[in-house]
Structure formats: C-alpha cells, structure tokens
Design a protein around this nucleic acid. Structure first.
Lengths: 186, 186
DNA sequence: TTGCGCTATGTACGTTTGTACGCATAAGAC
DNA sequence: GTCTTATGCGTACAAACGTACATAGCGCAA
C-alpha cells in the first residue's frame, strides 16, 4: 500500500510525508485525545517509522501545534467559502443558520478536534495565535455581510450553538436557529 | 500544615481525604491538562501517598470523572443562585449579561477546566450524563425567567460569549452583551 | 491488656513514553 | 564506474506511567 510515489521509488524521498504525518496526528487526536497522542501511535497511523517523528518535528508539542494550525486553517477556509457564496443578506443569514446547526464540514470528528484544541490552547498561551488567526478570518467573513456588532454576536451564537448541538441530543432545531439569527441581525 | 484533624490524630482516618483528592485533581487538570494528570502528580498536590489513589478510586478515569462531576455541580449551583436572586425580568436579563462577560465564578482556571471537560466528554460518551445533568440545571434556571425558546438561545449565547471572552482579548464588551440579550429576549 | 479485623500505604513490576544518535542508503559530482 | 554528502531511520535508554499487593498501623470488642 502507498507505493505509488511520484518518482517510482518504494520509500525514501516522499515529500508528502510531513503532511501525511500531520493528517495522521489529527486522526489520532480525534480518537484518543491529546492525552492519548504519542509519537508511536501517530507513526503507526501515518505508516512511517518512529524515527520520522523526531526527524520532521522538533517535539511532540511541535507536532500537535502544527496539526492544530492546519485544522483551523482548513475550517476557516470552508467557513469563508460558505459566506463568500452568499450574495444577499437573506442568503448570508441562511448561511449562519447552516453553520449553527449541522454544518456539512462540522462532523463529529472535527468538533471533537476543536474541543481538544480549545483545551490545549487554554493551557498554552504561546499558541494562542492559532486561535486569533482563525477568529480574525471568521470575523472577516461575517463582516462582509453584517455590522461589526452583529458579527460579534453571530460569531458567539455560532460558537455556542455548535457546541450545544454537539453535546446534547436534539439541540437547536433549524427553525429556532432561523429565528435567533433574525433577532440578532435586526 | 493540615494537622488540625477532628480527632487529634496527625494522619490516618481523615474523612476529607477523598474530597481533598478530588479538589487536587481539578487543580492538576487546570494546570497540566487531562493529558498531564497522573496519579503521582495528584497525590503530591493533595499531599497523600500514592497508594491512596488506587485505594479511593477504581482507576484514573474514575478519578477524573468524579472531579469533573464535582466541577459541574459547583458551577451549576452558582449559576442557579445567580438567577434565583433575580426577581424581575430586568434583573434576570442583567444576570445573563453578568454571566456572559466576566462572571465572578468564571475564573480563568474554571474556564480551562470546562474546556478540558468538553474535550474529555467528546471522547467518552458514557460520561455524557455529567453534561446533560449540568445542562438541565442551567436550562431550568433560565426557564424560570424566560420562555423555553428564549432560554435555549440565551444558553447558547452564554456558552459562545464565555468562550470568546476567554479566548480573545477584549472579547464582548458589557454594553454589547446587554444589547444582545435585549434582542434575544424580546 | 490482648487479639482481631479493616483501613490505608509503601513498594515493586511490567509497560509505555519522549527523545537521542550511529549507521544505512540514495542522490549527485566526476 | 567510484566517491562524497546529506537525508532518513532502526534501535536503545532513562524516566515516568498505572496498577497490584503484601503488610503495617489503628480502632474496637472482649
């Protein structure tokens, strides 16, 4: 498996290795949590030797940080795309409702990863830039359609609704979300 | 220190031991995260021998679960008290604003613990009852003052605003929070 | 006082961890 | 073809881990 490299080689010189390790790291974090993420488990998931871990990444924390950075960039990109598509104010409001309850990209796996990220960031102030970068992108996307004040409130309600929908059964029905967004964006 | 037991003993037979271990567990989780929480570290923080850990708790997960349960009960209790105090609708709305930005009980430490809890619960469906119990209490407190629909939306905005206020500098100013609550509870 | 039984603890054990490092090996110059 | 160089990896190691368990210490009945 995975023997179809670009240069015909069976191993050795695989420029996608680092990216694949990062991908595998997210997979391991999603299943085992940060607390269960080890060099060996990630290496197995990415199908690379253990030595590759310390070769490509300075430390385990470095690896986790890079993985989280990729996660936020991906999500921010999807988020931005969802709002770039909206043309009218009505469509923008509907996009907020989409994101609030059952976004296409907000799978259970991703939500788990986000919560792991939050907990991780809370204890490591030096990687808070990952969050602020993400936040800035989200805010920017929202402010293309709403005033700064409204954008702030929508950002918060998206955060809260997403978490509640994930944590509790039923959560917030789509109709209720629509009413909330209407109130907030008035 | 801590030698003022009820029966004059210096050690041995200390009925508060278990509670103190749970307290210490929260302390360790807040600083080191769940991933850095070990029997040994908790034992040191609680100033009890390592053997006490496996004696009082079936496993490390059992300990963490009990610690988180205590955390949610405490927070839910404070939350409930804050709303029990409110008499008029106006006071209830102001209580929501209080909780949204800079609650007395929502210290950085507690917020960190909550985020650790979220991440923990996401990977352990069998302790979701801790969350649903907390949620039920919060909802109950809110529904004493607001309709079910409004209570749901306020619950979500509290969640989101609290997290955003914790993650990002400035966050949501008090005045903005007041406007948001006014819109949502109309 | 003496003996019993339960509570509590010190210690030891087998695993797993992060990381360092010497060596194998492919790529490129000639 | 041969030699050189730098990239990538197998392996080893000390530290730390969760947990089991034999036994030490105390309250209490007699």
């Amino acid at each position: 498996m995975a023997a179809e490299g670009s240069s015909g080689g069976n191993r050795r010189y695989d420029p996608d290795r680092k990216a694949r390790i990062i991908e595998a790291t997210l997979e391991v974090i999603a299943v085992q949590g940060v607390s269960g993420t080890t060099h060996r488990r990630v290496a197995e998931a990415a199908d690379v030797p253990l030595g590759s871990m310390t070769y490509h990444f300075a430390s385990l924390d470095d690896l986790i940080e890079q993985a989280f950075l990729k996660l936020t960039q991906e999500i921010a990109h999807h988020f931005d795309a969802a709002f770039q598509k909206a043309q009218t104010a009505e469509e923008a409001r509907e996009a907020v409702v989409d994101v609030m309850c059952g976004w296409f990209a907000m799978t259970e796996r991703k939500m788990t990863l986000i919560l792991e990220l939050y907990a991780y960031v809370a204890r490591k102030p030096d990687i808070r830039h990952v969050m602020t970068g993400w936040m800035a992108k989200s805010r920017e996307a929202l402010e293309r359609h709403f005033s700064p004040d409204v954008a702030t409130s929508l950002d918060a309600i998206i955060e809260g609704a997403t978490i509640h929908n994930f944590m509790y059964p039923e959560g917030i029905p789509r109709e209720a979300a629509r009413r909330i967004v209407a109130k907030l964006s008035s």
